Computed example of a mutant assay.
Amino acid sequence: MTFLEKIKPHLISDDVLIQEAVLHAIHDYPYLPEEHINVLLKEAFHKKEKQLSILVYIANHSLNEEAIQTLIEHIPGMDKSNTHLAINLLNQMEPDIALKYKPALENYVNADKWSLYELLVNGTEEEIYSEYGTLVNVLEQADSFQHDVFIKAKQVAACIVKNGWVTENEIEAVIQGELKEPWFSFNGILNVYMIGLLKLERFIPTLASLLDRDDDVLLDEVSVALIRFQSDEVVEKVRPYLQKDESIIFAASVVENIKTDLAVEALRVAYQQTEEEDSQDLLFEALCHQFSEKALPEISQHMEKENFSSLVDIEQTVYSYYSIVGLEHPDLEEWRKAAMERELEFQRDSEQETLLQDVPVRNETKVGRNDPCPCGSGKKYKKCCGK
């Protein structure tokens, strides 16, 4: 069975532990079918206890018209503490779909964003490139990272790619120039994004070589671009970085989200060659999210350890792995009970925090590596404050 075939029966599982594991596994996987997104989105509004997790973990996925219609129908009646998460999903709209539903969405999208959508749909090549240059300049001149501006710049870059207004040679020239500098500019990072959109395989070795850079914005785009290829060539080029402390977090994320037998084998080998506790836990989690029986030896070995990192919910992860793959284990019920105790504790904490503030935030001591970072950066904890 393929990865998608394995997770499909569990997308809206009544077992909250299993569904959480599926949501973690699909968060960075770029090829989730649109119908799966639509099913999850409807479940989020049908069962409010699942709403927070679902809205957070589908935030990287594109929305079709059916999904937009679901949001239009349900956002007005949402609990205010989660409304921002639903509105955030609108960043994944295609510009033409956004304009089609503008009357219903106007209250949720800033005026300058509507101007951008109009430009992306009707603008000339010269106008689009002018906007691209303006946004890149804003990013470069800002004192801190401007997330909203970066999202707009990526939308403009996607428009340039979609219209065939950039060539492989032009991207090559930009990347080669960036490699000579100690830091990538935002133009360089956006060209990495365009490499992923175009799936330019010649750049795979170059992208992999960037995994030990100390620039999280760049590393996010490098990871996304490499995952898009879904190829064993990526696995081969990335696997050396699974052995390096400075690159294992992003390297493991890349290999975890490439669903091939070689990816499983690479994670298994890296696990056996790693002695550092946090790295072993991270590789264990990546292996579990492959949902492959071939990973069973390492997963079984890991559960014989006495100590685990506090950053990974080991019991939930292993319980969900065995349940989804369909394997029996004498400790399965014990794992489930331990994980449910923590889940119930988290829910109690969230309810208490809701009384004190508008948006419930998971207690930092309980945050998982795949959860949104409590600092509010929008990144996964393992790629932000959990590094």
Rank of each mutant, 00 (worst) to 15 (best):
L287S: 03
I37F: 05
R268T: 12
M78I: 07
E131S: 08
V254P: 00
E304N: 06
E236A: 14
E5T: 10
E343C: 09
D143F: 12
N169V: 15
Y129L: 15
E293C: 05
G177A: 07
A252Q: 08
G77T: 05
E275L: 13
E106D: 09
L23G: 01
E233M: 12
T206L: 08
A295C: 05
D112V: 00
I18D: 02
F145T: 02
A173G: 06
F45N: 06
S350Y: 09
V156I: 09
I204K: 01
S320Q: 05
D215K: 06
N107A: 15
T365C: 12
K113Q: 14
P95M: 04
L40V: 07
K180M: 11
A142L: 01
S323Q: 11
V312A: 01
F145M: 05
L311W: 11
I12Q: 08
E118F: 00
Q357F: 04
V254I: 14
K379L: 10
K100Q: 03
E43H: 11
K113D: 14
R202Q: 14
P240E: 01
V222M: 04
N257C: 06
P76L: 06
Q176N: 14
E5D: 12
V255N: 00
A270W: 06
V166M: 07
Q273A: 13
A263P: 07
N82I: 11
L287Y: 03
E34S: 14
K383G: 00
K180S: 12
I248Y: 12
C384N: 03
D331F: 10
L52A: 14
L332N: 04
G376W: 00
H10D: 04
N137E: 14
D358F: 09
I7H: 04
I258L: 04
P374W: 02
L119G: 00
R336M: 05
K42I: 09
N82Q: 14
F284W: 00
E277Q: 13
D14Y: 11
D15S: 08
N91Y: 15
Q19K: 12
M340L: 15
V254H: 01
E364H: 13
P360Y: 05
H27L: 12
K294Q: 13
L139V: 04
L287A: 02
N107I: 11
A86D: 00
P30G: 01
H302Q: 08
Y321Q: 06
T354Y: 13
R336I: 06
E66M: 09
L4Y: 03
I37N: 03
L311S: 13
